[in-house]
Design a protein around this nucleic acid. Structure first.
Ligand code: ZN
Ligand code: ZN
Ligand code: ZN
Ligand code: ZN
Lengths: 134, 134
DNA sequence: TTTAGATTGTTATAATATAACACCATGTAA
DNA sequence: TTACATGGTGTTATATTATAACAATCTAAA
């Protein structure tokens, strides 16, 4: 199976915003991104949201729905399928993308009561991270 | 194990808003709720959001995070644990709460690479519903 | 070169959600 | 009874998140 999502050539705006998200240790919110790229010429919310939409579409970033925040993808298996899973610490808000072959296989093969399968899903686990548990 | 979440006595505002959500065939958005209860004396967004927060806390409703919408719970097993799963039709936006012992068991027992388990999670499956597939 | 598609820049506005503060009802303890 | 704690309410204002609409520009293929 050919993987092509990493091969997209990003435009200037896309590269600027992706770099910012990619080097961030935590998910970034849209207006925080805007604030950080204004000095690079990206001045309006819509410019940010358009780039975010595109980066999501090509699998370079994901949206953490429960937080309205965006994180770079570091999981080569989830990008085409848009099948994502995260753990979220409710204390410090640390977010980690889960890369588990077992989990993705289970979910991709899950059938609802009508026998319907779903290749696209988003799963968010909530708890306390290692640091916050101690 | 004693189940107590259904036993909450709702206040007037809580009952009004829960009834509205409960009888809706589709998830409702906060401002749509507001619009529909203004004739009953609930006039401000904050009154709605406070009730929504409480109803979520006691397990009577869930939030569909990817849609910013609220749906009544019809699943007796998910309310204490706040472990929820939904299927969402990307065509008609129909949302169904998934009640699968196998799925909830699998997710409750899932361990991440640090061996961490999560009793709280939210899963949203995306696809086409039966009607939209044909 | 022409054309179609994608991207950009811009202003304005819509939609979603919370802060802050005063007031009220109910239950419990002194 | 009084005092206090808790949770719910009403209200105004504001913060945060996201999209509409339109014109201009760039890029790659035919
Ligand atoms: Zn990913
Ligand atoms: Zn933590
Ligand atoms: Zn439920
Ligand atoms: Zn449908």
């Amino acid at each position: 199976m050919k993987i092509m999502h990493k091969e997209h050539t990003l435009t200037k705006n896309q590269q600027i915003i992706f770099d910012l998200i990619d080097k961030s240790p935590e998910p970034l919110k849209a207006y925080s991104i805007l604030h950080n790229v204004q000095k690079k010429g990206i001045k309006a919310p819509l410019q940010v949201y358009r780039v975010l939409d595109k980066l999501i579409e090509i699998g370079k970033i994901h949206k953490i729905e429960s937080r309205n925040a965006f994180i770079a993808c570091h999981n080569s298996s989830c990008q085409v399928a848009k099948a994502t899973a995260f753990s979220i610490c409710e204390m410090c808000e640390k977010v980690t993308e889960i890369s588990s072959a077992g989990l993705s296989k289970y979910l991709a093969n899950f059938k609802d009561k009508d026998g319907m399968k779903y290749s696209k899903y988003n799963l968010e686990f909530f708890g306390l991270c290692k640091k916050c548990r101690t």
